[in-house]
């Protein structure tokens, strides 16, 4: 208990100190080395940059670090060890059930991983799952955001409702889908039959292809609001004057969309897609709840496979190897994504 109190006091003091420090320093350096935030429509003050020569160079350099200190400290403290640990475990024979038999085994874990009979099916599923989910969320979220971008009666109420799926936990959403798409007593089949869209019940969760589709649908349903909120927020910040100017210039709505709207919301869209891809790629709760990877691994993805594998075989060497592999794929993705979208140009990322 004492340790806890001391720890908390420490964290609190640290934060207070940081704030005070920043406050003190900033008084001396009103015009630091600012990198101007990227603004697609450059209508204002790019000239202010580095206009005034810094007076207290050494201290100013530390300024951004001070701002980021608490965040960085927390993340390094909490993630540092697990991160390093999983890299080491990936090259070890590491079974929870045999703590006495831990030793380095080179690439054995990776070999074992690619020796699994269904591994290519699982990899294929993972890509389909991520690609369609992200695209679906993005396109539908964008549509919703555009539709919401104009005032109409009761817009507030409408938004409050339409954003709700995002606030449900994945496990409740998963359970709802597992239940609704049940081939026998599920409401989806019942509805489709009553509407004469199908003549025979479909075993949604028992048919290869369909089961993955249900998981993807659930994922999209859950994620639309997030994209919509982010895109809507940036749509709303497009200065009206720009649209007015384009009207005078005689731009059509399509041209306006592609030449003003898209460039303006691009940074937000890029960040959102980036973060969501990572998040979706790593999420397995929906899959575990809805189909448990079934039937016969046809809706299994790498993370859900890893989750089941780690906890059923206790082989954390294998799980870590898979984890490291996932991270490697994601790092490559992030790099390529940022390069191709040229987000780098403005000093962002």
């Amino acid at each position: 208990m004492l340790i806890l109190v001391l720890y908390l006091l420490g964290v609190a003091l640290l934060c207070a100190l940081g704030i005070w420090f920043i406050g003190r320093h900033s008084r001396h350096s009103r015009h630091g080395r600012f990198s101007h935030g990227k603004n697609p429509v450059r209508t204002h003050g790019t000239t202010s940059r580095r206009k005034n020569r810094p007076r207290l160079g050494v201290q100013r350099k530390s300024e951004p670090y001070l701002f980021l200190l608490p965040t960085l400290l927390l993340l390094l403290l909490m993630f540092g060890y697990p991160l390093i640990n999983s890299f080491i475990m990936a090259f070890q024979n590491y079974k929870l059930t045999a703590p006495g038999k831990i030793y380095f085994n080179g690439l054995d874990n990776f070999r074992k991983l690619f020796g699994e009979s269904d591994i290519w099916l699982i990899i294929r599923n993972s890509f389909i799952y991520v690609l369609i989910s992200v695209l679906g969320q993005f396109l539908l979220g964008m549509t919703l955001a555009l539709a919401l971008n104009k005032k109409f009666k009761l817009r507030g109420l409408y938004q409050a409702i339409v954003f709700l799926p995002w606030s449900l936990s994945a496990f409740v959403i998963g359970l709802m889908h597992r239940w609704s798409f049940n081939g026998e007593y599920g409401v989806i089949n019942d509805m489709l039959i009553k509407l004469s869209l199908i003549s025979e019940k479909i075993a949604w969760l028992g048919t290869p292809g369909f089961s993955l589709a249900v998981v993807i649908m659930a994922m999209i349903w859950m994620g639309i609001p997030f994209f919509a909120i982010m895109i809507l927020a940036s749509l709303q910040s497009i200065p009206i004057s720009i649209y007015e100017a384009s009207h005078i210039d005689g731009c059509g709505p399509l041209r306006r969309f592609f030449q003003i709207t898209i460039p303006y919301i691009k940074p937000t869209v890029i960040v959102t897609i980036l973060l969501r891809t990572i998040w979706i790629f790593n999420s397995f709760d929906l899959i575990v709840v809805i189909t448990n990877g079934g039937p016969a691994n046809y809706s299994q993805t790498l993370p859900s496979y890893m989750y089941t594998k780690a906890f059923s075989s206790y082989d954390f060497g294998l799980a870590s190897a898979l984890g490291v592999l996932l991270m490697a794929v994601l790092v490559v993705y992030v790099t390529v994504f940022l390069k191709t979208t040229r987000y780098n140009k403005a000093g962002n990322f």
Binding site: G183, E184, K201, A203, W204, L205
Partner: peptide, 21 residues
């Protein structure tokens, strides 16, 4: 057994018996 049963675990087995299927 229903086509769906290929993906049934404990819960669905019991639910469907109790539920009259």
């Amino acid at each position: 057994a229903p086509k769906d049963a290929i993906n049934w675990g404990f819960v669905e087995m019991v639910d469907n018996f109790v539920g009259g299927l």
